[in-house]
Computed example of a mutant assay.
Amino acid sequence: MKDYKKYYTLPASAEDIYNAVTNPLTIQLWTGEPAEMSTVPDTEFSLWDGSILGKNLEFEPNKKMVQQWYFDGQEEASVVTIKLHPDKQVTSVELRHTNIPDEAYNDIIEGWNDVYMGGLADFFEL
């Protein structure tokens, strides 16, 4: 199991980013795929039309989101924490993803950089 931590800078307010990652309609706008999402703890979510599945654990509006991501056959929870740090006209997004299965690590990192955070960056630069 591996962990990943990285900071991303996005050209948007913390409130706009929080809404973009928690509102299913907005998620569909920037991903182009159906999404199921709620800010109620202990609810299931689905992103990219079921490519990413998990459970919502914790939310602090405009500040923090914690989720458990499911991997087939994994006993120990894989946890994603996203913290938002506003800084003038941009927001620093702190990502921490723990307990990533070794065989999925490279694909997960590529997904974070190119698809998830890359998609958000493209969405906010329009």
Score class of each variant (00 low, 15 high):
residue 30 W to K: 04
residue 30 W to T: 00
residue 32 G to N: 00
residue 32 G to C: 01
residue 33 E to K: 12
residue 33 E to R: 11
residue 35 A to K: 00
residue 35 A to E: 01
residue 36 E to K: 13
residue 36 E to H: 09
residue 36 E to Q: 13
residue 36 E to P: 10
residue 39 T to W: 00
residue 39 T to Y: 00
residue 40 V to S: 13
residue 41 P to G: 10
residue 43 T to P: 13
residue 43 T to R: 06
residue 43 T to N: 08
residue 44 E to R: 14
residue 45 F to N: 05
residue 45 F to V: 02
residue 45 F to Q: 01
residue 45 F to W: 00
residue 46 S to Q: 07
residue 46 S to F: 02
residue 46 S to P: 11
residue 46 S to M: 01
residue 47 L to N: 03
residue 47 L to Q: 03
residue 48 W to D: 03
residue 49 D to K: 13
residue 49 D to L: 05
residue 50 G to I: 03
residue 50 G to L: 10
residue 52 I to P: 03
residue 52 I to T: 12
residue 53 L to Y: 05
residue 54 G to K: 10
residue 54 G to C: 04
residue 55 K to G: 04
residue 57 L to P: 01
residue 57 L to G: 06
residue 57 L to Q: 09
residue 60 E to K: 11
residue 61 P to T: 01
residue 61 P to C: 07
residue 61 P to Y: 03
residue 62 N to S: 14
residue 62 N to E: 06
residue 62 N to Y: 13
residue 63 K to N: 12
residue 63 K to F: 08
residue 65 M to V: 15
residue 66 V to F: 04
residue 68 Q to T: 07
residue 68 Q to H: 11
residue 69 W to T: 11
residue 69 W to I: 10
residue 70 Y to Q: 02
residue 70 Y to G: 02
residue 70 Y to R: 05
residue 71 F to L: 01
residue 71 F to Q: 00
residue 72 D to S: 13
residue 72 D to G: 12
residue 74 Q to V: 07
residue 74 Q to A: 11
residue 75 E to N: 14
residue 76 E to S: 15
residue 76 E to C: 15
residue 79 V to W: 05
residue 80 V to D: 02
residue 80 V to R: 00
residue 80 V to G: 03
residue 83 K to P: 00
residue 83 K to F: 03
residue 83 K to V: 08
residue 84 L to V: 05
residue 84 L to K: 04
residue 86 P to C: 07
residue 87 D to W: 12
residue 88 K to Q: 11
residue 89 Q to G: 12
residue 89 Q to K: 14
residue 89 Q to E: 15
residue 90 V to I: 11
residue 91 T to V: 02
residue 92 S to N: 10
residue 92 S to Q: 09
residue 94 E to D: 15
residue 94 E to L: 15
residue 94 E to Y: 13
residue 94 E to K: 12
residue 94 E to R: 06
residue 96 R to W: 02
residue 96 R to P: 02
residue 96 R to C: 08
residue 96 R to I: 08
residue 97 H to M: 01
residue 98 T to L: 04
residue 99 N to K: 05
residue 100 I to Q: 00
residue 100 I to P: 01
residue 101 P to V: 08
residue 102 D to E: 10
residue 103 E to H: 15
residue 104 A to G: 05
residue 104 A to L: 03
residue 104 A to W: 05
residue 105 Y to G: 06
residue 105 Y to F: 15
residue 106 N to K: 13
residue 107 D to E: 10
residue 107 D to Q: 11
residue 108 I to Q: 02
residue 109 I to M: 10
residue 109 I to P: 07
residue 111 G to N: 06
residue 112 W to G: 05
residue 112 W to T: 02
residue 112 W to K: 06
residue 112 W to D: 06
residue 113 N to E: 14
residue 113 N to Q: 07
residue 115 V to H: 14
residue 115 V to T: 14
residue 116 Y to E: 01
residue 119 G to R: 04
residue 119 G to M: 01
residue 120 L to G: 00
